[in-house]
Nucleic acid binder design. Structure first.
Lengths: 224, 224
DNA sequence: GTTGTTTTTCACAAATTAAACATAAATGTA
DNA sequence: TACATTTATGTTTAATTTGTGAAAAACAAC
């Protein structure tokens, strides 16, 4: 497998070298940039960069600015290197879409651990936003469901219910469990409301309505 | 099976005790920490902790910070206890990788339900819920029974009964015992109803129906 | 407010299962 | 073998659960 590419941006070459060493030892590929402008050039030139580590304090263009520019075009994970973290900075950072902070000085272990954590998170979430089962595709971000090449219109609850079914395909789900997940835990209504939604889902899904199977005396199960 | 270990972090001992009581009653093992530092120590010392429940408001190190530190190394599920959830908090929390929120005050039912939901999610539903005996396989999660390569359709009670037999293979089960386990303790019907279900099971299982053996004057036994 | 949509509830028919029953078959015992 | 007891089985009945259409309620948009 390809090594994961990380762009390290810092004006001090000593710091760049340090970070690079740690990361290379953990089997990452590292690119270096010594200022914001160069970083942006490199990032937009190389589509395969998976993570950016950004020093906050840099002459000319500081880390926040670089972050802002990157975020205008990309959701690539960003880790900020800060001298000391104060709340003000963090708030700003999270608004800009910073994924993680590391305050200097840091241990190699912390650096690598956070890098891996951020990468894990970003990989995981991306794929979790599109669910599929057979020829059914559910885009949770866009709130769109496709059956075959047809797109179908679902209401909010119907969408949530179908997404829950697909997330748990092959698993028998009792009405109670369904209620607790798709509705709120403090919902005290009738469990039969599930039946009504299942009915609508089945009819909107046409042939594929059969995928929602009844488990008599228990609940439902989604299975292609 | 080992009990699932949960770390509860809250500076108020009253709240810790409350949460612990609910969880212990639901058969979890609970560790307590009264501040963030202690929590981190305990978490990194004990690799078998399956879930962390974190109060947001704590002196010294708050819940967010604890969360951040844990997430730097681990993907363990985290549930946050909040006084009241505002959007700002949630946004921050989800960026930090919080799995679930519970706002105070909460009911025991809600607490336990969310804990179980989060654990189920994190296990990827890869739970060990498959029983087998000879070439009979019972997937309790999917509610599917296979005999050889054939899948057979069982009603709810039949399924429960067969699962009970297989869970107790080789053991002679009296009608009374069977009634108490597969039916409810408050069932006052005729014990002969078991016979009817055994009859249907045997016929649906074909050859393997013989595995359900009659113990004359007592009950039944499952044996390959 | 009014209108339109979504969600929930309700009522009843249809489907399915569980339980009861009656009788035949099997088992154990004297 | 004969008899009492227990189990197997086919059938019937009762109970439960689900599907569905329509009405009511809740919610949003205008």
């Amino acid at each position: 497998m390809e090594k994961t590419k990380i762009l390290v941006v810092d004006d001090e070459s000593r710091m760049r070298k340090l970070v690079k060493d740690f990361l290379v030892r953990s089997n990452f590929e590292v690119l270096e940039a010594e200022d914001g402008a160069q970083a942006l050039d490199m990032f937009f030139a190389d589509q395969s960069i998976s993570l950016i580590i950004l020093d906050v304090m840099m002459p000319k263009m500081d880390g926040w600015q670089v972050c802002r520019e990157v975020r205008a075009y990309s959701q690539v994970p960003i880790i900020m290197l800060t001298a000391k973290t104060n709340e003000q900075d963090e708030l700003l950072g999270f608004q800009l879409g910073v994924d993680e902070y590391i305050s200097k000085p840091f241990s190699p272990k912390i650096l690598v651990a956070r890098v891996e954590a951020v990468l894990r998170r970003s990989n995981g979430n991306a794929s979790e936003n599109v669910l599929s089962a057979g020829d059914i595709t559910i885009d949770k971000t866009a709130h769109i469901v496709s059956v075959g090449d047809e797109q179908i219109e679902l209401s909010y609850k119907e969408f949530e219910l179908l997404a829950y079914f697909v997330e748990n395909k092959g698993i028998a789900l009792s009405r109670e469990v369904i209620l607790n997940h798709v509705w709120n835990y403090d919902y005290f209504g009738d469990a039969r409301t599930i039946d009504t939604h299942v009915k609508k889902l089945r009819s909107k899904m046409g042939d594929r309505g059969e995928y929602i199977k009844t488990i008599w005396g228990y609940g439902y199960k989604f299975e292609c």
